[in-house]
C-alpha cells in the first residue's frame, strides 16, 4: 500500500549518514514490507539502508553473523543457519508471512519493529546477540538485553545479529499455536538443550513468547533442567514450571488459555528437542 505524505527518500552510503537522517526523524527501511502497511502517521522521510553492505551471513568457528539487511529467505536458505541446532530457524521462519513476504522482509526490520514475533523467542533461545549503531558508535549486546533495557526505544540502527556456535550435543525446537495458519501466534515458545558427555543437561534455554509479551526466558525451568536427564518426568516438570509464568489477556486469548497453550507448546518443543538429540 503506497504511503501518502512521504516527501523524501534517502539512500545514504554510510552508517553515520543513515543514523543522522534517522536522528532527524527519517524512518529506516529494511524490506519496507511493514512500513508500507504501518508507517506511523506523519512520516515524511524514509531512509533506505540498502547501500550499507548489511546483507550478509558470515560463518566462523564462533557461529554466525547475520547482517541486518539479510532477508528472512536469506536466513532460511543459508545451509549453515538452516541446519543450526537441528533446523530451528527454518522451522520457525516458514510461519512468518509467505515466501513473497520473506523475500523482502529483513532480519533488522523485523527486530526493530519488536512486536508480534515468532523470530525473537527463537533468537533468544539460541543465544543470539545484536549489534546497534548510534551516536556512541557500535555496540553489541544479548538480544534479550536489547529488549529488556528498551534500547530499541532509543534512536539507533540495527546493523547485525550474531548467533553463537552450537554447544556440544545440542538441539533446539520451536512451536507456535495460532487459530489459523497465517494468524499471528497466540503463544509461541523455543527451547535449546545441550547435553554433557554423561547425557545430562548442561545447557538449557526455555523461552515463551506472545504471553502476550515478546519472547522471555523462563529461568526456573532452565535451572531445573540443568544436570537432569531429558526423560518424561523432567519434561513434565518443565511444563509445570512454564505454566507458572505470568500470562496476560488480550484480544487473542485470555491468560488462562495461554497457560494451557504454554503447557502444550513446552511439551512439543521438548519432545522435538529430545528427538533431535536422540535421547528418546
Amino acid at each position: 500500500m503506497s504511503v501518502s505524505g512521504i516527501t523524501t527518500w534517502l539512500r545514504p552510503a554510510t552508517l553515520t549518514e543513515a543514523f543522522d537522517a534517522v536522528r532527524e526523524g527519517a524512518l529506516p527501511v529494511g524490506g519496507g514490507t511493514d512500513l508500507a502497511l504501518h508507517a506511523p502517521r506523519g512520516t515524511t522521510a524514509l531512509v533506505d539502508l540498502v547501500d550499507l553492505d548489511l546483507d550478509f551471513v558470515i560463518s566462523s568457528d564462533d557461529g554466525y553473523r547475520i547482517g541486518a539487511m539479510t532477508t528472512l529467505t536469506g536466513v532460511m536458505e543459508h545451509p549453515g543457519l538452516a541446519a543450526h541446532l537441528g533446523g530451528v530457524l527454518p522451522e520457525m521462519l516458514i510461519h512468518i508471512g509467505s515466501p513473497l513476504l520473506r523475500n523482502a522482509a529483513t532480519v533488522g526490520g523485523h527486530l526493530a519493529r519488536a512486536r508480534l514475533s515468532d523470530f525473537v523467542p527463537v533468537l533468544i533461545a539460541i543465544g543470539a546477540g545484536i549489534t546497534v549503531f548510534d551516536s556512541r558508535g557500535t555496540r553489541s549486546m544479548e538480544l534479550e538485553t536489547y529488549y529488556e533495557r528498551n534500547v530499541f526505544e532509543t534512536t539507533h540502527l540495527i546493523t547485525e545479529v550474531s548467533v553463537p556456535a552450537a554447544p556440544p550435543r545440542s538441539a533446539a525446537a520451536f512451536q507456535r499455536f495460532s487459530v489459523k495458519g497465517f494468524d499471528i501466534a497466540t503463544l509461541n515458545g523455543a527451547i535449546t538443550i545441550g547435553l554433557a558427555e554423561d547425557g545430562t543437561v548442561a545447557h538449557a534455554r526455555v523461552v515463551l513468547g506472545e504471553t502476550p509479551r515478546l519472547g522471555e526466558r523462563v529461568p526456573d525451568a532452565e535451572q531445573m533442567l540443568l544436570g537432569r536427564v531429558l526423560e518424561a518426568e523432567v519434561i513434565e516438570e518443565t511444563i509445570a514450571i512454564a505454566a507458572t509464568e505470568p500470562f496476560g489477556s488480550d484480544s487473542r486469548a485470555s491468560a488462562e488459555y495461554r497457560r494451557d497453550l504454554a503447557r502444550w507448546v513446552t511439551r512439543h518443543c521438548l519432545q522435538r528437542v529430545a528427538q533431535r538429540l536422540e535421547v528418546v
Binding site: M1, W9, R11, V29, G31, G32, T33, L35, A36, L37, L46, D48, V50, T71, T73, G97, S98, P99, L100, L101, N103, A104
Partner: peptide
C-alpha cells in the same frame, strides 16, 4: 493492496515479492 493475496507478485532481482509492499524507490 495489503500483502495478503499475492496477485501483484513480481520478481525483484529474481525473487518474488508482493509489489504492493515493495517501495518503488527501493527498486532503483
Amino acid at each position: 493492496d495489503n500483502g495478503d493475496c499475492g496477485a501483484c507478485a513480481v520478481l525483484v532481482d529474481g525473487r518474488a515479492v508482493n509489489a504492493c509492499l515493495f517501495f518503488a524507490a527501493k527498486a532503483a
